[in-house]
Design a binder for these strands. Sequence first.
DNA 1: CACCGTGGTTACTTATGGATACCAACCGGC
DNA 2: GCCGGTTGGTATCCATAAGTAACCACGGTG
Lengths: 115, 115
Amino acid sequence: MGLPVRKNNASIPPTCPLSESMALLRGAWAPNVIWYLSAGPRRFGELRHDIPRISARVLSARLRELESRSLVTRRALDSSPPSAEYALTELGRELLPAIQALANVGEKVMARRAS
Amino acid sequence: MGLPVRKNNASIPPTCPLSESMALLRGAWAPNVIWYLSAGPRRFGELRHDIPRISARVLSARLRELESRSLVTRRALDSSPPSAEYALTELGRELLPAIQALANVGEKVMARRAS
DNA sequence: CACCGTGGTTACTTATGGATACCAACCGGC
DNA sequence: GCCGGTTGGTATCCATAAGTAACCACGGTG
């Protein structure tokens, strides 16, 4: 006994697409950054304000990582205090349905807890 | 100049449902564990085999955390070598659509890269 | 001139994850 | 009775990631 030999491995994909998208979203606050960019380009300080508990250090690191993964683009504006604007790429936008699905679950859980 | 005053804050929910579900999925490999439990209950060693790169230490920690968040249940079996079986709760199953959406994106990305 | 906002960077500390080894209980074989 | 294998972990140590707080250059403002 001890090994009831399970054959339901068949329903599991051989190489893991889940790990693939989790790799794109790796790093703290990455999904939030993408979410808050979904409505259009935003500047560093705006994102910092959108995600109150993120530190400048982590936001900076995350944006650079997301840029290197081609999920967001950075555009430097030479305004009087030089600012930067971040936007989603096409690839970044492909993650939006999944992030929306996560948000939906969160919403449902929050609603249930509030009731 | 410098501050083009953005009003698109209106499209952003006040409290963040995304962070809510990300908190449920916090910790390395958490989404994978839930994914591999979606087909039915599985034992510790089976999960370890399902997710080849996870260490026993982290799997153990993750299962305990997911159990404390009421996403999975643990059932000890008193077989000859005592074993344990983990299964999704109703709450855990609610995350499956979101995890499926992530997997779909990953699949698309992988397919595109392979072509 | 001192001060503030913008977009960061630089320490320093803590939390998390990974690798490896090890353990107790039990079984079957010898 | 001893050996090795199986199962579900734990113990230990180290590397990386994230949080905290302070600081900086720049120009505009009062």
